[in-house]
Amino acid sequence: MKKVSIILGIMAGIGISAQSSTLVINNYSGYDAAGRFMTVGSAGSGSSQPLMYALPNAPYSTYTIPAGGYTKYDKFDNTGGSNPIPIPGWWYIDPLNSANNGNYPYNHPIITAVTPVDEWMGFAFSLTDSTGYSYDTFEVGDPVLSGGFLSSSQTGPNTGSSADWFTITTPGGLVTYFQIY
């Protein structure tokens, strides 16, 4: 019985310290998606949890998913490096200690520390062409995590493109998808 209790305790600890979903991004459209990509504390955690915005990825001046782009993020602190669409760092906002607010590289200990409590929240973006001209704007994400994201699916009136944000349960755990068609 003691071994079972120890194993259950270890499993619970692993579950508590793990971010609850992997994020998969697919941009099947012919437009770049440029905007603010955000994370926030998990549902029910209140306003005391950190909030983060993805920093711009080169060569763009905002966080951008290029036309035809694909990427997968398992954790906030491994979004940079050799990732197909790297997030080089995060703008971190700590409601409990404003001295912590600021830009941090993706692999900084403060970003690693937020991984157990933050979730992928949403993306407020515009579909743009190669000249930067904006055609449609979207705000899609998890409405449970933020009232600002009233929808997990939208269609652009000018391009007819659609953006969808949804989470599924797989044998390996939760996977959140963000897709543009």
Score class of each variant (00 low, 15 high):
8 L>W: 03
66 P>R: 15
38 M>F: 13
91 W>C: 12
24 V>L: 07
100 N>C: 12
164 D>C: 01
10 I>Y: 01
43 A>S: 01
16 I>G: 09
166 F>G: 01
48 S>Y: 15
46 G>W: 00
42 S>P: 13
144 V>G: 04
61 S>A: 14
5 S>Q: 13
118 D>H: 00
89 G>P: 09
29 S>L: 10
134 S>D: 01
96 L>G: 09
83 N>Y: 09
143 P>M: 01
164 D>Y: 01
114 V>C: 07
148 G>K: 11
107 N>H: 14
94 D>V: 04
17 S>T: 13
127 L>F: 00
84 P>S: 06
146 S>Q: 05
63 Y>M: 01
135 Y>P: 15
168 I>D: 08
176 T>H: 11
52 M>S: 07
142 D>I: 02
85 I>G: 06
121 M>Q: 04
5 S>E: 15
76 F>E: 01
120 W>F: 08
124 A>C: 14
54 A>M: 07
22 T>K: 10
58 A>C: 15
154 Q>Y: 00
164 D>H: 01
12 A>W: 02
6 I>T: 10
67 A>E: 14
97 N>C: 05
97 N>W: 11
51 L>V: 11
109 P>H: 14
158 N>Y: 11
140 V>S: 05
64 T>Q: 10
16 I>D: 10
116 P>S: 07
50 P>L: 00
106 Y>F: 09
150 L>E: 03
61 S>K: 09
167 T>W: 03
69 G>L: 05
11 M>E: 05
99 A>Q: 11
86 P>F: 01
69 G>P: 05
96 L>N: 05
130 S>F: 12
139 E>D: 15
159 T>F: 11
56 P>V: 05
38 M>W: 10
158 N>E: 14
20 S>A: 06
47 S>P: 08
27 N>F: 11
18 A>S: 10
5 S>T: 10
161 S>N: 15
124 A>Q: 09
146 S>K: 04
75 K>Y: 12
181 Y>K: 08
24 V>D: 06
131 T>H: 09
67 A>G: 14
135 Y>G: 14
13 G>H: 08
16 I>N: 09
75 K>E: 02
139 E>I: 08
56 P>A: 01
36 R>Q: 09
37 F>R: 03
87 I>Y: 00
62 T>C: 08
21 S>W: 03
44 G>S: 06
139 E>W: 15
156 G>N: 09
77 D>A: 13
105 P>W: 07
119 E>T: 03
155 T>K: 08
107 N>A: 15
59 P>K: 13
83 N>Q: 08
135 Y>C: 15
66 P>M: 03
32 D>P: 04
84 P>M: 14
23 L>R: 12
55 L>S: 10
65 I>T: 05
33 A>W: 03
120 W>A: 02
107 N>E: 13
38 M>S: 10
50 P>K: 08
177 Y>S: 05
170 T>M: 05
107 N>K: 14
142 D>R: 00
19 Q>L: 07
154 Q>E: 06
74 D>V: 14
72 K>C: 02
